[in-house]
Design a binder for these strands. Structure first.
Lengths: 251, 251
DNA sequence: CGTCCAAGTTGATGTAAGTCAAACCGTACT
DNA sequence: AGTACGGTTTGACTTACATCAACTTGGACG
């Protein structure tokens, strides 16, 4: 660790500044008035920097906090007794990780940084206390959790009804819109996760994911080199996801 | 409708009595002190009786309330633009329906009574107001929503990793434990849903569900006649669900 | 009590995606 | 520069389950 770093990194927990955060229109601050922002800042802790592969938290360890992704990205997954992994989600800047763990003493999943990642930490007891005082914040928490239930239902639907192509098209479009929300290119981005994670998340074999990527590429729908992806024909992708609406329709 | 019924059914909304409800140890009252129970009773409305097949609420209609199942059972499902149905859950007495709809103006799914069913209705604005005042109730709401996220992740896992037999064994065991919580026989119960619903929920074809049922029956694990089910060998069922933990293990 | 229709079962066949195996990167490390 | 090792791609073969089709059961109802 260099001298310079030592100076900048004060002994954590370091207070984060929601006021100055560029993600305040995506993250929790989105829900509350400017003058209540201070009380949120009072409870949030600046998390440390996680490098690729590091665990932000581990399944079955005591549940203390939810984490908002500040930069980078996080993958959450459940590990079964048998050692099987199931990826349950990918989290990008402005998104809140840990909502599935609010029903027990310990984390319901493991959160792993997919790249160099920074987070803000919200200790759960303080967060609950605060949401009790700020109805809009409470409402937003309900909103976020409900959203996550819906997302998960959507995933279940994808897994049970859709083909490999449809699943991958859906994922690409989901990522695309999430990049767009952050004012980044919706058609030209770099996948934060490995093919393996995509496969696991979508209930496919790695080989299948690979094959679909090349098939899409050959059809001129996308261009992919490693993790770099370019969506050449978004409409075609949307067609693929809705392909299953072929109720007597010939195409 | 008989005379007697007309007398008992006062013009709704009728106030429900949580104090006297036999489900108070499963439902929302579980979370709060006896002296706060009155404030919960103040907001809850006695719902009407739904007969089999009736909708309790419909996807895309304005979201007003969450519903606790009092008797009977409810199936929730999403209908896609293409008209495809995806069953997202089954709800039994004491369970809360509608948590996935708290992020929008309208219900995220359709809730249909699987049999003659009664519910208690919690208007969402009043419920939010109350959870702002009762920290334990707020905590419980977080708990329930988090649980639902976990359930849905569990389902996704089942759908993406497990065989037809494993999925059905899991469902049977889940139902079993939910009957048990209600002090009913965990080994001898009647399925509230049709084979079709089971198939849809588990991402299988009806025929497959049927075949697995008979296979289990031939193996002496269960006895099934229509919707009547008897679990003859719970351990065997548990073995089936964990079968995928065969990492080099010979059995 | 017979009729009817939906729900459930059983059998035969097709297929999307898994599995196994091998080659091919890209990049990190000595 | 050479080696080593994930991650990725491609091909050949297998399989669990879907699909299609026929038959059976059972409860609602005149």
């Amino acid at each position: 660790m260099t001298q310079a770093l030592k100076f900048r990194q004060a002994p954590s927990p370091l207070k984060a500044s929601c006021h100055q955060c560029s993600l305040s229109n995506l993250c929790l601050p989105l829900a509350i008035q400017d003058n209540d922002l201070d009380s949120l800042e009072d409870i949030v802790q600046q998390g440390r920097i996680y490098s690729r592969g590091e665990h932000v938290f581990d399944q079955s360890t005591p549940f203390r906090s939810c984490f908002a992704v500040k930069s980078g990205s996080i993958k959450t997954s459940i590990i079964t007794e048998g050692g099987e992994e199931q990826v349950t989600g990918f989290f990008m800047p402005g998104e809140l990780v840990g909502l599935d763990s609010m029903s027990g003493e310990s984390y319901a999943c493991t959160a792993k940084a997919l790249e160099r990642t920074t987070v803000c930490e919200f200790p759960i007891d303080k967060l609950e206390e605060l949401t009790g005082k700020l109805p809009e914040l409470q409402h937003h928490m309900y909103h976020l959790m409900s959203q996550e239930i819906q997302n998960s239902h959507q995933l279940a639907m994808l897994l049970s009804k859709n083909t490999a192509e449809e699943r991958i098209a859906s994922l690409l479009l989901s990522l695309s819109s999430r990049f767009q929300r952050r004012r980044m290119s919706p058609t030209n981005f770099s996948l934060p996760m490995a093919r393996n994670d995509i496969a696991n998340f979508l209930g496919l074999a790695v080989e299948t994911v690979s094959r679909v990527f090349t098939r899409f590429q050959n059809q001129g729908i996308i261009r992919a080199r490693g993790r770099e992806v370019e969506l050449l024909n978004v409409e075609a992708l949307q067609m693929v996801t809705r392909e299953f609406s072929r109720q007597g329709c010939q195409q």
